[in-house]
């Protein structure tokens, strides 16, 4: 019974370790497929400002370089 319990615990620990290792080696799609000429922006941001009126709202540049869109953040897709 001890061997069984130890085996289950070891499997969980190794599984969590694998999760951390694999997750850290992944990159977001906007990082993996970015080029010097064109850039896919971070999901949830845009280049026309938070109100989509062409005004990037300079005060928001201090906090968010590209003006984060208001509302619920989307889950970025990993490559």
């Amino acid at each position: 019974m001890k061997a069984f319990v130890a085996a289950v615990i070891a499997a969980i620990i190794l599984g969590i370790g694998a999760m951390l290792a694999l997750t850290s080696s992944q990159r977001f799609a906007y990082q993996a497929f970015a080029t010097s000429g064109a850039r896919v922006s971070e999901p949830g941001t845009n280049l026309v400002g938070p109100r989509w009126d062409g005004d990037p709202a300079p005060d928001e540049y201090d906090a968010e370089p590209h003006g984060k869109v208001r509302g619920a953040a989307s889950e970025p897709k990993r490559s």
Binding site: K2, A3, F4, A7, V8, A10
Partner: peptide, 14 residues
């Protein structure tokens, strides 16, 4: 022995 059983059960559970 204990290590053999540990190995078996870890593989089996997975």
């Amino acid at each position: 022995n204990a290590f053999e059983r540990f190995t078996h059960w870890m593989t089996a559970v997975c």
